[in-house]
Simulated assay, not measured.
Amino acid sequence: MNAYSAYRDTVKKLLDSGCENAEFEARQLVEFCFSLNETQLLMKNRENVDGLKLKRFNDCVERRSLGEPLQYILGEWDFFALKFKVGKGVLIPRPETEILPRLAIDQLKKTGGKVVYDLCSGSGCVGISIAKFFPNCRVYLFEISDEANYYARQNIKLHNLFNVELIQGDVKKGSKYFGLPNPDVIVTNPPYVPTYDIESLQREISFEPKIALDGGIDGLDFYNVISASWFGCLNPGGILAMECGENQIRGVLSFFLNISTGGKIIKDENGIDRVIMLKK
């Protein structure tokens, strides 16, 4: 079989399985397994592919048709124009989360801050993105999950960073427990899906770790912790930037009404209120 025939068969199979971006994902799998970009795929449409490569390709297609996220199959994904290693046990980086490093970078440019905390850091994509822009900053990644920290370590090594420190621990213990220098910026994409909503999410999300999704009964457990045990450790003039779920803005802000001096709400590319930035 040639690669183009394999590609066309895959588009149909992925469409039949409910994949919304079948053509894009089929091209990604072709490039991953056959090392052919879109142009090469069209130019070599009559050349038969190696049998072992075809078997690997078919295995990947089967995994995707059963719902496994494309990012896990490829083993990496782009975030903030950088590549990050991902796989089972770590939350997949998403475009809307790029708001967090963008806000942090803008703040650090203005203030010259030197310390950043990334709470519930997962793969490390947010904190590492910031660290790449500011080699003189110290970025601390806080994450409880062994699986997520495995990928965070790989990503720190991948980007050859020496200004990032991975802290394995439970952020619910609060900032004082860790005894680190006070931050100028805190960023966080905490678990914020209400517990009883997790089962109704799209099937791909069922492959992602529940610990990275489950924000308690109302999805707000971690924002309560952050307001009570982390916001206060910010240096004067510092900012906290938090991703949150659709329709959670009012609930999240209720924890910070009497402790923040101001802030703003940032919408994602779909027009959804996605990130809250608060000033100390």
Rank of each mutant, 00 (worst) to 15 (best):
E31F: 14
P135V: 14
N45C: 14
S200K: 08
G122D: 04
M1C: 02
L74D: 00
C125V: 03
K83M: 11
F80Q: 07
I186A: 01
E204L: 00
N224C: 06
L213I: 08
I205S: 08
R138D: 10
S35A: 01
T10Q: 04
E243H: 02
P191D: 11
L42N: 05
L166S: 09
G216L: 09
R64Q: 00
V252K: 06
C19F: 08
G122P: 01
M277E: 15
G89A: 08
E23L: 06
D118E: 12
N235K: 15
G237Y: 03
E31N: 13
E96H: 07
D59H: 04
E165N: 12
K114C: 09
I167W: 07
G122H: 03
Q154R: 10
F80M: 06
A148T: 04
E47C: 06
Y151G: 07
F134V: 03
I266Y: 00
Y72P: 03
S200Q: 10
A212I: 05
G113F: 06
V126F: 00
S145G: 10
D218I: 06
P135H: 08
L15Q: 10
G271Q: 09
S229G: 03
E208G: 11
R250H: 11
C233P: 15
G238M: 14
T39D: 15
P101L: 11
E38A: 08
I276H: 00
R46S: 12
F79R: 03
L41S: 09
E38C: 05
Y150P: 01
Q202T: 06
L41D: 11
E147I: 04
I249M: 15
K176P: 05
Y140N: 07
F133Q: 15
K12Y: 02
I156D: 00
N235S: 12
G216Y: 12
K83T: 11
R94K: 09
G124Q: 01
G124A: 00
V252A: 09
L108K: 01
R94Y: 09
L201I: 13
E165P: 05
S254M: 05
R153C: 03
L82S: 09
L257V: 15
I186M: 06
D197H: 07
L70Q: 11
L42Y: 12
R203S: 15
G122Q: 05
S65T: 04
I167D: 11
V139K: 08
K12H: 06
A148C: 12
R102V: 02
F84K: 02
K172H: 14
I265G: 05
Y7A: 07
E25V: 13
L141C: 12
F24N: 06
D16S: 11
E62V: 14
